[in-house]
Design a protein around this nucleic acid. Sequence first.
DNA 1: AAAAAAAATTAATCCAGGTTAACTTTTTAC
DNA 2: GTAAAAAGTTAACCTGGATTAATTTTTTTT
Lengths: 259, 259
Amino acid sequence: MFFRSNGSTGLCYSCPNRYFRFCKSLLNGSSTELNAQAVKNLAVAAKQYLYHQGDVNQELFVLREGWVMLTRVSDDGKRQVFRSVLPGELLGFQQYFHGPAIYSAIALVDSVLCKVPNSVEHYSTQPELALSLAASEACDKMLTEMYLGNITHRNARERIAFMVLEIYHRLRLRGLNNGYTIQFPLKQEDIADTLGLTAIHVNRTLHAFKNEGVLQIHKHQLTILDYEFLYALAGSRFESGYLNIEWAHIKPALSVSRL
Amino acid sequence: MFFRSNGSTGLCYSCPNRYFRFCKSLLNGSSTELNAQAVKNLAVAAKQYLYHQGDVNQELFVLREGWVMLTRVSDDGKRQVFRSVLPGELLGFQQYFHGPAIYSAIALVDSVLCKVPNSVEHYSTQPELALSLAASEACDKMLTEMYLGNITHRNARERIAFMVLEIYHRLRLRGLNNGYTIQFPLKQEDIADTLGLTAIHVNRTLHAFKNEGVLQIHKHQLTILDYEFLYALAGSRFESGYLNIEWAHIKPALSVSRL
DNA sequence: AAAAAAAATTAATCCAGGTTAACTTTTTAC
DNA sequence: GTAAAAAGTTAACCTGGATTAATTTTTTTT
């Protein structure tokens, strides 16, 4: 990991994430010194932890590029995967600044993060930023609630269909798809620990999907072969389109056109 | 439902929830006109909906007294229970003000809510309030994540043990317990729809707990008979005590003493 | 390029919790 | 106070996904 200041080069002004809510608030801030100019970049190599559960004094980051996974091992030794953090999303906010982290953050591919100012004083002078933070937390909460709804009362095929579509759509809104193909660094065990299944059953299900011509994963590339089928399996979870409320309002052009 | 203004009577100043973070911020606000004085009370009878999924222009509330449950029926007809809202907690915030609600809010017992100011302009003049909002969302997110972790990879007994302890502790922090007994308006079907079980299996499990002298529910009163046993079942979820981080910091005296 | 480690694959067996179908008790409505 | 509806209870049977165990493929390290 290394830090590089963004102050003089003003990387924010050409960042592909600059239209995402929190970044926009940073750039719109009345005091550039406390906002975009104060952002520092941080490179993290694949498989490196950004921080570990229990760490204190953690910073607030926006993922600039790459893929970060939030995960936690509980006392009974079981591992829970909370979610993936995709470019433009915040990570590291906690209700109490500098309290211990409840989960670890690991970069699954080479990633670049932006460390952003995070102090009560800072937010006091930038109320819009504090509100963006609340919106970001509300968005994460909604995503978590969707997963909760997906996992309670739905079977393995439906869960996996949901997860694949959810991630596909989140990447597509960022233009990070190539048709129906996306980069997909999650292992089968990661999928299992996200959905409350065993890696073995995830394997069985993915294999069935491949045989049925629904979906295939090969060398960290995921291709959706039968979108309609997946949608029919997972669809009722997307009904109100609340998955992408935030992004849709920010990058409307991207959210519908490109495929 | 009826509204009553809080302005002249200043109900906030004697409210038992006034030390909870969001309310404290309201009371601390520089402009009392825009804060505590602007709060309006709203009474909702048991079994009445406060709002329905899909409703737009919903307001932001703090639950003053009572019990509100957040629930949603998805396209496939299945019902998901998200969580219970207990006194002092916020409900109704969404990333986009006045966007459609993703779930319904129903009062399970006669309840009183406080409608609080909720507009961009308002938060702009009260950055501390916006930050409290972010903290509240982060707290909800954490609770949802805990449930997600509880439900993935844990069996029915453990899930129910967790849920009972979680709710018991949240009530106890508010002094809303009577020893090991609490008011418990949730039906077995509500528990099932929260935990991803069937009502029948919840019934079986609760019955077993009763026979084992662990726990009993009778006439909407829940009594924990063997706390240690429940804790051993659900315990590893409480390990870092992050359940009550927010409250512990605000009402430390209550959180440990009374039982 | 070889060795070691990690991840994916496959099969056999088993059980926690779902499903269906009564039936009983409690609560609500009139 | 009675009827109707809702909630809780119980039992029999069944299945989706867990468990265990072994093997193959891929990735990483040296």
